[in-house]
């Protein structure tokens, strides 16, 4: 369950102000965030992830009041509770796909890279159709394959929430559908909620709910 109540946020250097009087997202829901550029879609994701702290109001994710956490606590919260999928995949070009999937275990102190984690990574890779390409580096993978690796990385720590920022923005139309279905399937397997920013209106019918930032209308 994600809850935002009376949230107001503005960047220190000015620009727009994001105000969210009230927003609730049910656990396991697949929610799309749409709207023109610069209206605060990514900022909403940052507030939910604890990467940005609201000036006022509360942000609660899975019973945790994120807006009240210290920086260290927010970092730990992100590492354990949230998986990220980025438009540019954000893979490490010097690591093979297997190591990219396990990357969170290399950089987060609380996550332990054990046999179970490795097995989970292998299982996700199998489910995403890249099991035979785990020794390849990103430059030897297609864009669709790179995003599959990124999805595996987002899910390997078993988060309750997946934040996808234009996750299909760099993909061709056919691959977009395949990747989105894959993300939905794997998230459903893990019981994870999906909050995805997208500009692609063709994909919206696949979501359970759409938040339109053009007028901050929330439609279901």
């Amino acid at each position: 369950m994600i809850e935002l109540r009376d949230v107001s946020f503005a960047y220190p250097r000015g620009g727009f102000r994001l105000s969210v009087p009230e927003l609730s997202i049910a656990e396991g829901a697949r929610v799309a965030v749409v709207g023109p550029s610069g209206t605060g879609k990514t900022t909403l994701l940052n507030l939910v992830a604890g990467l940005a702290v609201p000036e006022r109001g509360t942000v609660r994710v899975g019973g945790v009041q994120v807006s009240e956490l210290s920086e260290t606590q927010r970092r730990s919260f992100r590492a354990h509770r949230i998986g990220f999928v980025f438009q540019n995949f954000a893979l490490m070009d010097y690591l093979p796909a297997r190591e990219n999937i396990l990357y969170p275990y290399r950089i987060v102190r609380g996550l332990r890279l054990d046999a179970e984690a490795r097995a989970r990574a292998a299982s996700l890779a199998e489910a995403c159709g890249i099991a035979g390409k785990l020794d390849r580096r990103p430059n030897a993978l297609s864009q669709g394959e790179q995003q599959r690796v990124a999805i595996c990385r987002a899910l390997v720590t078993q988060p309750g929430l997946i934040l996808a920022d234009e996750a299909t923005g760099n993909l061709d139309p056919e691959t977009k559908t395949v990747i989105l279905d894959l993300l939905f399937e794997r998230a459903a397997d893990a019981g994870a909620t999906i909050l995805a920013v997208t500009h692609d209106h063709e994909l919206l019918p696949r979501f359970d709910r759409v938040i339109d930032f053009a007028d901050l209308r929330i439609t279901t």
């Binding site: 992830a49 260290t72 970092r75 992100r78 590492a79 954000a90 490490m92 990357y103 950089i107 987060v108």
Partner: peptide, 16 residues
């Protein structure tokens, strides 16, 4: 730098 930004988003501390 982009790698470090990603690591920060994924939950890595400044020390890491």
């Amino acid at each position: 730098a982009p790698e470090m930004a990603t690591a920060w988003r994924l939950g890595a501390g400044r020390g890491t």
